[in-house]
C-alpha cells in the first residue's frame, strides 16, 4: 500500500515548489524584482533535486530504506525539470532571446559557462532515464550516469561564482555534495576490496 502512494506523493511534492513560485508570481508576492526571484528559485530547486537524487543509495545503505531508490529516477527528472525552467527563465525573461548576448554570456561569464555546461551534461541523463535506454546501453549506462555527480559539482561552482560576497549558501550545498561524494568513493573502495578478497579466496 505504501508503494501505491509513494510515487504520486513524490510527484506532487516535486511540483510544489514550481506551483508555489507560479502562484507567488501571479499574486505579486515575489517582491520588487520577481523575475530575479524566479531565476533564483528555479536554480536553487535544481541544485536541491540533484543532491536529493544522490541521497537514495546512501539512505539504503545506512538505514536500509528501499523507497528512495524507487523514486530516484523521478527525483532526477525533477532536477532536469527545474533546470529547464531555470534556463528558460534566463533565455526568455532575462535575455529575451537575444542570442548574441546569450552567446557572449556563455563565453565570457564564467558562472554562465559552468551553468550551461551543467545543463548540457544533464540533458543526456534525462534522455537516457527510461528503462528501455537502460537496457540498450547496458554497462555504459552506469558509466554515463556517473555524470550525476559532475552536474551538481558544476552547479555548486556556478552558485559560488555568482554570489557577490557571501559564499555561505553555496558552501552549504558544497558540503552536502562532498559528504555524498565521500560516501560514494568509500563505497567504491570497499567494493574493490571485497572483489579482490573474493578473487583471492576462490
Amino acid at each position: 500500500m505504501q508503494k501505491h502512494f509513494l510515487k504520486p506523493l513524490v510527484f506532487i511534492s516535486g511540483l510544489l515548489p514550481a506551483v508555489i513560485l507560479a502562484w507567488q508570481f501571479y499574486a505579486d508576492r515575489l517582491g520588487a524584482n520577481p523575475i530575479d526571484e524566479i531565476t533564483d528559485g528555479t536554480g536553487t530547486w535544481t541544485l536541491r533535486f540533484l543532491l536529493i537524487t544522490l541521497m537514495a543509495t546512501p539512505l539504503k545503505r545506512l538505514f536500509g530504506w528501499g523507497w528512495p531508490l524507487h523514486v530516484r529516477r523521478m527525483l532526477g527528472l525533477f532536477a532536469f525539470f527545474y533546470a529547464t525552467l531555470h534556463l528558460f527563465t534566463y533565455l526568455w525573461l532575462d535575455q529575451f532571446f537575444d542570442w548574441g548576448e546569450i552567446g557572449t554570456d556563455i563565453l565570457k561569464r564564467p558562472f554562465i559557462t559552468v551553468g550551461m555546461l551543467a545543463f548540457v551534461l544533464l540533458l543526456p541523463l534525462a534522455m537516457t532515464s527510461t528503462r528501455a535506454m537502460m537496457r540498450r546501453l547496458g554497462r555504459n549506462w552506469k558509466a554515463l550516469h556517473q555524470l550525476a555527480y559532475v552536474v551538481p559539482l558544476l552547479g555548486v561552482l556556478h552558485y559560488w561564482w555568482l554570489v557577490k560576497a557571501d559564499v555561505r549558501e553555496p558552501l552549504v550545498y558544497g558540503v552536502v555534495l562532498i559528504v555524498l561524494l565521500a560516501f560514494r568513493v568509500r563505497r567504491g573502495k570497499v567494493a574493490v576490496r571485497t572483489a579482490a578478497r573474493d578473487r583471492c579466496a576462490s
Binding site: 524584482n33 529575451f96 557572449t104 565570457k108 561569464r109
Partner: peptide, 18 residues
C-alpha cells in the same frame, strides 16, 4: 562589462522588459 554582468541592459524595477 563586469565579469558577471554584461551591463548593456538593466531591468527598471516594476517593468517587464529590460
Amino acid at each position: 562589462p563586469h565579469p558577471r554582468w554584461s551591463q548593456k541592459r538593466e531591468r527598471r524595477i516594476g517593468e517587464f522588459r529590460k
